[in-house]
Design a protein around this nucleic acid. Sequence first.
DNA 1: CTGGATCCTTTAAGATACTG
DNA 2: CAGTATCTTAAAGGATCCAG
Lengths: 116, 116
Amino acid sequence: MENCVIDIDDMQFILQVLGGKWKLHILTTLYFGKKRFKELEREITGISPKMLIKELKELEAAGIVDRQTFNTVPITVEYSLTEDGLTLKPVLEHMKTWATTFRETQQVKTMTASAL
Amino acid sequence: MENCVIDIDDMQFILQVLGGKWKLHILTTLYFGKKRFKELEREITGISPKMLIKELKELEAAGIVDRQTFNTVPITVEYSLTEDGLTLKPVLEHMKTWATTFRETQQVKTMTASAL
DNA sequence: CTGGATCCTTTAAGATACTG
DNA sequence: CAGTATCTTAAAGGATCCAG
């Protein structure tokens, strides 16, 4: 019945992948290329190492993000998007496009209403 | 900088609209047509009236859902998707399609890995 | 540098009883 | 019927300090 329109499990999955306060920030940052832990921490204003590592682990477990370690001193770790992670991009673009036009439309309606 | 890929505010907005435990259930139910409060409560297994009204109010405030009251005894209230709310459907389909194929791909990889 | 561990606050959600 | 109110629990998130 439910999958007549959308499959709830699949939807909950993508919301889990994108949800939370920081996942989108991490993903958009990684779309510019691979980054080290400290680079991510610097570029994502306000995030704590605890949150950063937690979100990265979830994205890694989901198969969106890849983690590579290098035996330098001190140790270096690089995070990047997987091939599969890159397939998220058009979906994000679609969502963003919808949200942008939707919010503009709502804005116009609010202004029109207050002008009455 | 950030809107080179996606606009965080717009993305947070759509995640807010779709996020939480029940919004998708409500939306998919309403895609079948307008429903009364009690009908929604019956069709969405496990939801409490408190959660239902809370999510409905958020969707209404966002302009996704419309609420109509009728002065019958007892009072009747009908919820439906707005015109703008209907524009969400293709976005949801896109998200679902991605999630489905992504999860199938990951499943294959896991099975392949365990076969090694 | 890359995290782990701990404690604390805030928010989301569930249960249940109640009102116009 | 269509919600409200209250109470409680669970989960998310933040702050800080510490270790390999």
